[in-house]
Design a protein around this nucleic acid. Sequence first.
DNA 1: CCCACTGGTAAGCCGATACTTACGGTAAGC
DNA 2: GCTTACCGTAAGTATCGGCTTACCAGTGGG
Lengths: 101, 101
Amino acid sequence: MANQLGFAALADDTRRTIFERVARRPSSVGKLAEGLDVTRPAVSQHLKVLLRAGLVAQRREGSRCIYQVDPRGVAAMRDYLDRFWDRALAAFKLAAEQEDT
Amino acid sequence: MANQLGFAALADDTRRTIFERVARRPSSVGKLAEGLDVTRPAVSQHLKVLLRAGLVAQRREGSRCIYQVDPRGVAAMRDYLDRFWDRALAAFKLAAEQEDT
DNA sequence: CCCACTGGTAAGCCGATACTTACGGTAAGC
DNA sequence: GCTTACCGTAAGTATCGGCTTACCAGTGGG
């Protein structure tokens, strides 16, 4: 589920920066938009994408909306890559021995 | 290095399918294009993207070009996600306790 | 009640990109 | 040497995606 959306979500530079900033500390939309070179609506759209990918979660706090990382989405992507890890390593080692170079 | 390129490479459905098929078994370009609904040049272009992302490696075998997974690229992406894992988990648990629901 | 703050959405623009067909170039078989 | 198989690249097209400005809704304080 988080594969297609997850990888697409982290493919964009600005969006990945937002994700990293959210990971450092749960923040509101306005706070996140402050240091970036894009407008606040753009940040809001990026957060929507991250939300659909399951990488972040939101909670209301008064009139502000606080975003934080959702570890489940991160875990899903990590697990996906893990499925290829051992297989990839074995294939690569085998080829390296054959090829030598 | 493999962050931007890596996530972008796996963001596309067709390209991720190619990647998974390469992971199952090192294959030539023609073999990879057989089961897909895109033409062979498209597969070649996708492999180029995966190559630049460091997710696959190529080796010549006669007139054929065999592609296989490069575990280093996979590891780079895995490590990137790992950096957020503990932090994400802690933040999420804390919020869950505060929020309760 | 009115106004400021916060944030999500709509419409439109523009660059990025995924796909196609057409072509060139190298390796194997007759 | 000529044909066939395999692969990468070029050019062109169409769709997708990120950004902006403008607008609307909900919250809180005077």
